[in-house]
């Protein structure tokens, strides 16, 4: 197993969170900065998965229960890999980080914290996050940090599908009925104030030159992609101002507290237990 794992963490292999954990036990530890960066990526994926998981058994059609389930599963896989790697800096496991951090210790973005709303709002959030993650991971594969690059190599292929899924629905809802057009447009209006935060650089990003992807560099291709999808979907980019958020991601929306309360309740009732 240990002999294999050295070759496993290379782009192209179907990397599993367990493989990262194995590497960590073999001494592949993230630096404090890399860990902070991995937390941002992992927390976005985790909070998104937590949101999407709610849809399983509630989607507009059974086929969509399965589709959203697949996306949530991919995201939780990415979250586990990033958090496992992040935890290596502090001797913490993925679950230590997911269940035993408080709100201000999370590094998720406002966007993924936004409530599901109706299917239109969920799809709007999906298109934004998937387009962003796609731009991000397709560059992170070239990171000097091999572990981040390897996680990104697996994730980018999956996120490619998430983006396609959101795009298909955006076009159908935008150019479907009057009601669907109104709802998907409202969905984009409600999530748009939180788009800007995804593309903000800060000191951490500066310190991780060559390792982290610079968020501001993703904006142009993100905008071009969104413009193309919106043109087909007969939608307009919402005319709303970016919300005051936090480029260091220490501050959060009010929604996160409720989400964490639900996610962590059982684990916290049983400190020290294994599941």
């Amino acid at each position: 197993m240990s002999g294999e794992s050295a070759t496993r963490i290379t782009p192209g292999n179907a990397l599993r969170p367990e493989d990262i954990a194995q590497q960590v036990t073999e001494g592949n530890k993230a630096s404090e900065d890399v860990a902070d960066y991995a937390l941002r990526l992992g927390d976005d994926a985790l909070i998104l998965a937590q949101r999407l998981g709610w849809w399983i058994s509630r989607a507009p059609e059974l086929e969509e229960d399965v589709a959203l389930g697949n996306i949530a599963l991919d995201q939780i896989g990415h979250a586990r890999s990033f958090l496992t790697y992040a935890g290596s800096a502090w001797g913490k496991s993925e679950d230590d980080l997911a269940y035993w951090r408080g709100e201000s210790e999370f590094r998720s973005s406002y966007l993924v914290e936004q409530p599901n709303g109706d299917f239109g709002r969920t799809i709007a959030r999906q298109l934004v996050i998937a387009a962003y993650q796609h731009e991000l991971y397709s560059r992170l594969v070239d990171s000097q940090d091999e572990t981040l690059a390897a996680i990104a190599a697996k994730a980018v292929k999956e996120v490619d599908y998430h983006r396609d899924h959101a795009e298909q629905w955006t076009v159908r809802l935008g150019d479907g009925t009057e009601e669907s057009h109104r709802r998907i447009a409202a969905g984009f209006t409600s999530v748009w104030p939180y788009v800007q935060q995804l593309f903000e650089d800060d000191d951490l990003i500066d310190r991780l030159d060559g390792i982290a992807v610079r968020p501001s560099e993703l904006r142009a291709s993100f905008d071009a992609y969104i413009a193309a999808v919106f043109a087909e979907a007969t939608l307009e980019v919402p005319d709303v101002q970016p919300a005051m958020t936090d480029k260091t991601r220490v501050k959060h929306s009010e929604h996160l507290g409720y989400l964490l309360a639900e996610m962590q309740v059982l684990a916290r009732e049983h400190p020290g237990a294994t599941w």
Binding site: G53, I56, D65, G69, L73, G77, E94, L266, A273
Partner: peptide, 21 residues
């Protein structure tokens, strides 16, 4: 799903409920 006490269990449970669909 939203309250599963570990991320591994959360993933397994999601996959299972999804299988049922």
């Amino acid at each position: 799903i939203t309250r599963a006490p570990s991320l591994k269990r959360k993933a397994i449970l999601m996959a299972k409920v999804q299988d049922e669909a």
